[in-house]
Nucleic acid binder design. Structure first.
Length: 721
RNA sequence: GCCACCGUAGCUCAGUCGGCAGAGCAGCGGUUUUGUAAACCGCAGGUCGUCGGUUCGAAUCCGACCGGUGGCUCCA
């Protein structure tokens, strides 16, 4: 058979030769470093065990102990997961293994184990893992036909593995033994591939344990998910741990406190951000920047209230669709409020049968009886025998009640501004923008600093246009988003096109309008030359979207801006414009938010810059610090001059030495620190230092100010000496 | 919402077996008048998240709740 290597050369091998054989033919060093093969044949790409016979003519990439190759790491980590599983089973024999895949930067294994693992157990597990690695046991694959494998698993009494096996493809199921042969050592149902031997695991570390559920189903048994990571070379592991440390040091929650940017106070409410002056100025500057860019592009500002009629959101679909993740409605009547309490009481009734469920349901019934006694019969309530059917009844009843909802989205309000008068095709496109505050009741476990909150401000806008204008509007929206990302130096991004999942019923609107919208999105993305991937099932419920996923300077991904095409809300709200033909037509809406949310965006920027904002965004741009109070008068002169130049300045004339003063300024990430002593006063200069600790020398005051103004105006051009 | 872990001064953290609540930084008052990564002395700062229980005695043990962190699920 002919094996084509990545450089295009072709090796003739005997049938049945393995990746190892190919590597050996190329050179002994390669054979020594090889761990698996990546095979391309018949248009498919699979990774195979090092010693597995190759399928015939194919393209082969030999995977080696290369810490920069994701495929190599994938195999390594998968195997390390097996070693960890074996160690856990050895220490805790009652463990049932569930599922242990490699993930982005490590691996995990889901375990069904009654005793909860703690970080104290990690050392013990790691010690056993280390021993298994030192034993340098082979990973040996064997296969059984389903008819043999299933009874074998059944006998082992592990329902998860049995379930995995039943759902696996193919007639043959594979197992891996960590040992010489079947029956001699730990084994696990596994698709593979694996390292040739445990000794190839160079460095690993258990990182954390957390909860999970079998197949992500919260009704399934709670499992423990034990996370770890592995590398071929200890140095790579060390580097990885250093990066995690770096990420921790950049945590916006810590920096936000240190730099006094924002706080989140439980007395105010979980997930509700208090912007302190220094955080607020960053946000304001970003808002002003975007406002300017939008006004230039024909957007018009609008403002709308923070709440709206429940019926508005019933009509838009937001309320029924996202009811669970909204703050409860403010019903206007006592009846509505009581029924809401009843509904919430019912929702807290445990799903599993038992005395707790019975008791909770009995309490709910009492409340229901009281409601009926006061407000009269509720159709269907008397027949409802389970909490679930009662919820349906009350839910239906509540749909008749009027009330208000904290707005979860701005679009319905903007839609009504559009509807406030008849529109002509000549008016279009209409572009409304608003930094709108929206509220969503995120699950408590989801809240995280500024990046996942319950109240936030969207840099929202809605564009209403004709079908002819759609593509142009999308193009310019994409350009605006790129302008925004460029301005804050988030230039490493990918674009995700979220399409509907045709098998799901969660979407609103006709398949035809979806097809149209998806086609337009594809066209706009295609034209703009963006490097985009399409993902099924990632659309919003009313339309497909383009998401900008940025990578920050330590390679973490964040979803920021979004652009959504919407044929559905115009339909639901019966939006029209009068066309050239003097007949009504349906406009198309674009929802877009380049920042996404100001909270999240600023949170991410804090981490991206590690608190060291570029000059144009820095809460304090310049610090003036004196050597001694002999120079205080000149320092104040300098301060006044900088303030007159509209720079954000602080002055420190305290009696500390210059060392600690500078230290404090640097801790606050102030871009420029001006040291003022008798020499500077005599010369009329300032001694410029940056927050990295570099001294940039002495500048005339005017030259320094000009430099700053230029750097601000260009959003980043550095001061030249 | 679920699972695990955590909650001591404004911040970072110590507090052994259940036996008087601790340090550094920040703050305040003084001394020092200083030339580039933390001068010196002093003072003040606490219902140990909250509530309940066990105990002669609880920061410490137990329970509930609140909050946080990590993950699961979710993310218009």
């Amino acid at each position: 058979m002919n094996i084509t290597l990545p450089d295009g050369s072709v090796l003739a091998m005997d049938a049945g030769a393995s990746t190892y054989d190919v590597a050996g033919k190329i050179g002994p060093r390669l054979a020594g470093a090889a761990i698996a093969g990546k095979v391309q044949a018949d248009g498919q790409e699979i990774i195979v065990d090092l010693h597995a016979p190759l399928p015939g003519d194919c393209k082969l990439t030999i995977l080696t102990t290369d810490d920069t190759n994701p495929d190599s790491l994938h195999v390594l980590r998968h195997s390390t997961a097996h070693v960890m599983a074996e160690a856990v089973c050895e220490l805790f024999p009652q463990t049932k293994l569930v599922y242990g895949p490699p993930v982005e930067d490590g691996f995990y294994y889901d375990l069904d184990l009654d005793r909860s693992l703690t970080p104290d157990d990690f050392e013990k597990i790691e010690a056993v893992m280390q021993r298994i690695i030192q034993e340098d046991r082979p990973f040996v694959r064997y296969e059984l036909p389903r008819s043999e494998a299933l009874p074998k698993l059944e006998k082992e009494g592990n329902r998860y593995k049995l379930d995995n096996a039943e759902r696996a493809d193919g007639d043959m199921l594979s197992f891996y033994v960590t040992g010489e042969s079947r029956g001699q050592g730990f084994e696990d149902l596994c698709r593979g591939p694996h390292l040739p031997r445990t000794g190839r695991i160079g460095a690993f570390k258990l990182r954390q344990v957390s909860g999970s559920h079998y197949r992500g189903d919260v009704n399934e048994k709670a499992l423990q998910r034990l996370y770890g990571t592995a590398f071929f070379k200890p140095k790579a592991l060390k580097e990885h741990l250093r990066q995690l440390e770096e990420a921790r040091a950049r945590d916006h929650r810590a920096i936000g406190r240190e730099l006094d940017l924002f706080s989140i106070d439980p007395e105010v409410g979980s997930g509700l951000v208090l912007w302190h002056p220094k955080g607020a100025i960053v946000r304001m500057l970003l808002e002003n920047f975007l406002k300017f860019e939008m006004l230039l592009r024909g957007y018009r500002p609008v403002y709308s209230p923070n709440i709206g009629q429940l019926n508005l959101y019933r009509r838009s679909g937001h309320y029924p669709y996202y009811r669970d993740s909204q703050f409860p409605p403010l019903y206007e009547t006592d009846r509505g409020r009581t029924l809401l309490s009843l509904l919430q009481t019912l929702e807290r009734v445990p799903a599993h049968a038992g005395p707790q469920r019975d008791e909770a349901f009995a309490r709910a019934r009492q409340l229901a009886d009281a409601a009926v006694a006061v407000w009269g019969e509720i159709p269907g309530l008397a027949d409802a025998e389970t909490p679930e059917t009662m919820i349906t009844v009350i839910d239906r009843e509540l749909q008749q009640e009027d009330g208000y909802l904290l707005k979860p989205m701005n679009c319905p309000h903007h839609v009504h501004i559009y509807k406030s008068q008849p529109r002509s095709y000549r008016d279009l496109p209409i572009r409304y923008f608003e930094f709108g505050n929206v509220y969503r009741y995120e699950q408590s476990g989801e809240l995280s600093g500024m990046v996942r909150v319950r109240g936030f401000t969207q840099d929202d806008a809605h564009l209403f246009c004709t079908p002819d204008q759609l593509l142009d509007e999308m193009r310019s929206t994409i350009q605006l988003t790129l302008t925004v990302l460029d301005a804050v130096n988030l230039t490493d991004y990918r674009v995700r096109v979220g399409l509907r999942d045709p098998d799901s019923s969660k979407y609103t609107g006709s398949p035809e309008s979806w097809d149209q919208a998806e086609e337009k999105i594809r066209a706009a993305v295609g034209e703009s030359g963006l490097n985009a991937t399409e993902e099924r099932g990632e659309a919003a419920f009313y339309g497909p979207k383009i998401d900008f996923v940025v990578r920050d300077c330590i390679k973490r991904e964040w979803q920021l801006g979004t652009i959504q095409v919407d044929y559905n809300l115009p339909e639901r709200f019966d939006l029209t414009y009068i066309g050239r033909d003097n007949r009504p037509h349906r406009p198309i809406m674009i929802h877009r938010a380049p920042f996404g949310s100001l909270e999240r965006f600023v949170g991410i920027l804090i981490e991206h810059f590690a608190g060291a904002f570029p000059l144009w965004l820095a809460p304090i741009q310049v610090a003036v610090v004196t050597i001694s109070d002999k120079s205080e008068a000149y320092a104040r002169e300098v301060y006044d001059a900088l303030v007159r130049a509209a720079l954000r300045v602080e002055v420190d004339v305290s009696s500390d030495k210059i060392g600690p003063k500078k230290h404090r300024c640097r801790a606050l990430k102030i871009p420029y620190i001006l040291v003022i002593g008798e020499q500077e006063a005599a010369e009329g200069t300032v001694n410029v230092n940056d927050r990295e600790g570099r001294s940039l020398g002495n500048f005339s005051l005017q030259k320094f100010v000009d430099g700053c103004l230029l750097e601000i105006a260009t959003r980043g051009k550095k001061l030249e000496s």
